[in-house]
Amino acid sequence: MNLNVIFALTRRYLYLYTRNPVRMIELIFWPSVELLVMGFLTVFIQKSSGSDFGSFIRFLLGAVIFWDVLFRSQQAVAISFLEDVWTRNLLNIFVAPVRTYEYLFATFCVGLLRVGLTVFILTLLAWLVYAFNLFEFEWSLIPYFANLMIFGWSLGMISTALILRWGQAAEGLAWAVPYLLQPFSAVFYPVSILPTVFQFIAWLLPSTYVFEGMRAGLAEGSMNYTYFGLSVLANLVFMVISGLIFAQTMKAARQKGLLTRIATQ
């Protein structure tokens, strides 16, 4: 693995953000709006129903922030690829001495930085507006976030593979894939709310264990190691499957000319 190549690719994707501040809207504006809307909606429902406001809003704000970790890391992989397609730079990258895994690793690094910025903004906002302290999770935040980020990378690889397979017409999948799994991930509600068939799907996803673990952590004040272990296990399976799908799609792309087709569309 050539770290220089990874560093160069990561820096190039970051240049795109510094050159165009409008892109920062995606990282700051939308997550903030989502947090505020969901937060105020919860306050309203709590006040109307007169139920326990404190725990309900903590679950919800935690879910919004945790979901953004998954979503932003998935986006980093898929959007970085699309950036090269949109700027017609994809061929320049793939005829350069860049190994596929170096390319992917650079998008993972971009994901890490994107998540860092978004989480910082959301944490600050949640604390200022709702007095919600994300750090009440203490050290367990790190394994939770790591699991969500890794799952985001897996989904990013699958999204990119699908875009590569079906061309630019399928670029909407870069945003759709994580939302396809959101209902099953039990982000804003416990798995027990879901119909039985959906519950079966939910327990296959690493994200479900993180969100269940987050709620358990908030309720009990300690980390649930069973959920953590199962999340790691499911993540490993997803990482291997998505890696194989991506590698197989790249191989097929080189056989069918899909790389050049998408790069010159």
Binding site: R12, E83, T87, L91, N92, V95
Partner: peptide, 16 residues
């Protein structure tokens, strides 16, 4: 590493 390429059908990123 020992080759290079340019084409009228590929560009360098326009926003850099």
């Amino acid at each position: 590493k020992r080759m290079n390429f340019t084409s009228t059908y590929s560009n360098l990123p326009s926003n850099l």
